[in-house]
């Protein structure tokens, strides 16, 4: 079954994107090519639904991805016929041009067009976002980052932009900045369980990245555990949260040096490390929970992951929401864990 067109298709795997874009001719045919916006016209034709326009937008995204430029252009034409050249439609037009550009020269030209539009109105959010995405796509990462920071200056409540900034920093290996930007997203959307899990993943990666000192390793791992736990708290049976917990546990277990320390030793160590008393209390909050707690968390995560993997492989009713790739990764993690458990 093809996924719903109401939802954004950006994160879908290729198979589903293909299924979506194959729906394009049927949808374009079944819906009227022009919808009158005048009050008189709406008396005679069918009522327009807001979902239709979302469908067109998503259809543009997925058909561009699969290379069906004609369907994308058709959708855009209908959007233009309905809304005229407003900012959002202009950004979609730019997106189609970007997808069709053959070489760098054409991309530069599109970039200039964006710049021109921004000169008229430099707080034009959709165009600004397209420009940043294009800069990033062309490999001009520092330009993209500075433009993003500028955007966030005048629109600091844009969680999508903060998340993009975080991803941009992350792709350059700047973990502290990436974590900071993700925390901003969390301020804007404190209930978003996937953002909690993402922050946990960032902290886990920051901790395992080379060059992390033992103090910051501890802190990051402890924070990661907290984040993953929170994501599970916000969402029952959240595969990603349990996966992260188990990953952190095995990483902490692998780093025997820290694993063997009792909590009191850890705090003693922190006390010796730090000379400033104000900082000590800060760091104590970030010390890892004691080994019993971690062990229990690990048991819980293993049990839950095994349950999820079992039910989704059997295609049980009520367990079909997980992605195939997610479940496969969980199964792999469980099978990695099993032999080492026997050794001990």
């Amino acid at each position: 079954m093809a996924p719903s067109l109401i939802r954004s298709p950006v994160q879908l795997p290729p198979v589903e994107a293909l299924a979506l874009s194959q729906q394009a001719p049927a949808i374009l045919q079944s819906s009227p090519s022009t919808v009158s916006s005048s009050a008189l016209g709406s008396l005679f034709s069918a009522a327009e639904k807001p979902e239709l326009w979302i469908q067109y937008e998503n259809l543009i995204l997925s058909s561009l991805r699969t290379g069906d430029d004609r369907a994308a252009q058709e959708c855009l034409d209908r959007l233009v016929a309905r809304f005229g050249n407003n900012d959002r439609v202009k950004a979609l037009g730019g997106l189609i041009k970007e997808a069709q550009a053959q070489n760098n020269g054409e991309l530069e030209k599109i970039l200039k067009e964006y710049d021109q539009m921004l000169e008229e109105n430099n707080t034009n959010l959709p165009i600004m976002k397209r420009r940043i995405a294009l800069l990033r796509s062309m490999g001009r990462l520092s330009d993209a980052a500075s433009a993003l920071v500028q955007l966030l200056d005048f629109s600091p409540t844009d969680s999508e932009a903060w998340s993009e900034l975080s991803d941009l920093y992350f792709s350059q290996g700047l973990y502290p900045q990436a974590i900071y930007a993700m925390e901003e997203v969390l301020i804007l959307a404190p209930n978003a369980w996937n953002v909690h899990a993402r922050l946990g993943e960032l902290q886990y990666m920051a901790a395992t990245a080379s060059g992390a000192t033992s103090g910051s390793y501890q802190k990051q791992m402890a924070e990661a555990i907290k984040r993953f736990s929170r994501s599970i708290e916000l969402c029952d049976d959240y595969l990603r949260g349990y996966y992260g917990l188990k990953l952190v546990r095995s990483a902490v277990g692998a780093a025997k040096m820290i694993w063997l320390l009792t909590p009191s030793q850890v705090t003693k160590r922190l006390l010796n490390d730090n000379t400033k008393p104000a900082k000590q209390t800060d760091d104590e909050d970030f010390s890892l929970p004691d080994s019993n707690t971690i062990e229990r968390l690990n048991e819980l995560a293993t049990a839950k992951l095994a349950e999820i993997v079992r039910h989704s492989s059997a295609q049980d009713r009520g367990w079909r929401g997980y992605g195939a790739a997610e479940v496969a990764a969980a199964r792999e993690l469980l099978s990695e864990d099993a032999p080492s458990g026997i050794e001990r």
Binding site: V10, L61, R65, G67, S137, S163, N194, V195
Partner: peptide
Amino acid sequence: MGNPFDFIEGRPNFVDIRKQRKEF
């Protein structure tokens, strides 16, 4: 709507369409 916070990670307004096209 599925997970209403999906857009934060998917970022549809920042989509790198050339990369997606190539991958597809």
